[in-house]
Simulated scan of single mutants.
Amino acid sequence: MELFTGSFQTLEHSLKYASAKNRAISNNIANVDTPGYKAKDVEFKNVLNNELNASFNAKRTDSKHLPFDRLNADQSLQTVSRQNTEYNHNGNNVDVDKEMAELAKNQIYYQALVDRMNGKFSSLKTVIGGGN
């Protein structure tokens, strides 16, 4: 018997993603004046692929259908450098305004996830307490 539904796991993976993104953004802001530093970002594609692998089971009914096993099942988040841009004469490509906006957006996302998880636990507490 599974005590928690898949939504808890999805929320947990989403919180890990938001935390990794927050670390990447914080590092970018901290290195805004570091010569040659390239801004980093966390790839969302891996998180999406992980969730699709975990909860999306499809059956191929024809050999012409696209296979679903090409999705990456790796649970780790990848941090990648943005190489194609340069904002400063010293080779640095951190745009502090963009990073601050991304940080604010990520904080709202993280707080929404925490609120949703609190709601799940509150519902579980109500069920365990018999509705009281």
Rank of each mutant, 00 (worst) to 15 (best):
K59V: 14
S63V: 11
G91Q: 10
D97T: 10
M100L: 15
L66T: 11
D97F: 03
S81Q: 14
F56H: 08
R82S: 14
L52C: 01
A58E: 06
D69E: 15
N72W: 06
N90I: 09
E99Q: 15
A73C: 10
S81P: 05
L52R: 08
M100D: 08
K64H: 08
T61N: 13
Q78A: 11
V94S: 02
M100T: 15
N93A: 02
N106W: 01
F56S: 12
N72P: 07
K105P: 02
T61R: 05
V94D: 00
N92D: 04
N93D: 01
E51C: 00
Q75F: 12
N106I: 02
N106F: 00
K105Q: 13
D74Q: 08
F56G: 08
V80F: 09
E102G: 08
E102F: 09
D74V: 05
A101Q: 13
N88Q: 15
V94M: 00
S76D: 14
K105V: 07
A54R: 09
N92C: 07
A73K: 15
N88L: 08
P67S: 12
A54C: 02
N84G: 10
H65L: 05
N90V: 09
A101G: 10
D69L: 10
R60F: 05
D74G: 11
V96P: 03
A54N: 04
N72C: 07
Q78N: 10
G91A: 12
Q83G: 05
A54Y: 02
F56N: 10
D97L: 09
N57K: 10
N93K: 00
N72T: 14
A58T: 11
N84A: 14
K64L: 08
F68I: 11
H65Q: 11
K59S: 11
N88P: 01
M100W: 07
E51H: 00
Q75M: 13
D97M: 04
Q83F: 11
F68P: 00
D62E: 05
N53F: 03
D74Y: 02
N72L: 13
S76R: 13
N72K: 14
G91V: 06
S76W: 07
T61E: 06
E51I: 09
M100C: 11
L66F: 09
K105I: 12
D62A: 13
